[in-house]
Design a binder for these strands. Structure first.
Lengths: 109, 109
DNA sequence: CCATAGAGTAAGCCGATACTTACCGTAAGT
DNA sequence: ACTTACGGTAAGTATCGGCTTACTCTATGG
């Protein structure tokens, strides 16, 4: 795998409800494609396509076990997202302070 | 104000590159719609529509100053997302452990 | 009061993308 | 070897959503 997943890619992947549902299922443990599809209102190929995106974003990894391809949650994507949000969070907090101070001076009511 | 924003709503909002760009701009401080639009390759109405979504997700708040509507980053949406991810993170970690114990394999394929 | 600036909304277009079915490859089981 | 199960891919469709222009409203300034 080895790509550093970008936050943008992760957020794009997480932007779809079905993909989120897939991830939620995978959160409880590895599953095969057919098993995932059986719990969702979409076809198996659809799930395959979503898994490809999730994999590209570093959110899942694949492991083959016979004819079954077991997918599981990958920490990498989540980590990338957390890092991104962390940065955003601190920057935003700093800005909040600045703005709050400026507003108390200028004080338009 | 700011309804309890759901993680799904936040992730949907963050799923669009332009909206992310808007947020990035807002990260450095409050801005009026026209100012945001001037820095992006889309029209002002497009920005307005994106801001509506971001607001619905609890990611920005609006403050009117004359004819200018100043938007700024809202902590609520970010907090909701962080909470969601936090839960996901811990659940996933727990699952990793379980799975790791059940299988005796390691390494990224 | 009229003009201008800023912004939200409506309607419509168009491209992206999330689906479907059909097909093909592969690994086990018999 | 045949069959069955599992899964990725291709091709086509159709829905969704992001963007634009046009319109309207409000607020400030002359």
């Amino acid at each position: 795998m080895a790509y550093l997943s970008s936050a943008a890619e992760v957020l794009d992947a997480l932007g779809d409800p079905t993909r989120r549902a897939v991830l939620e299922l995978l959160r409880d443990g590895p599953r095969a494609v057919v098993d995932i599809a059986s719990e969702l209102p979409v076809s198996r190929p659809a799930v395959s396509q979503h898994l490809r995106v999730l994999k590209g974003a570093g959110l899942v990894t694949e492991r083959k076990d016979g004819t079954r391809h077991l997918y599981r949650v990958d920490r990498d994507g989540l980590a990338a997202l957390r890092t991104y949000l962390e940065g955003f969070w601190t920057d935003a907090l700093a800005t909040f302070k600045e703005v709050a101070e400026q507003e108390q001076e200028g004080g338009t009511a």
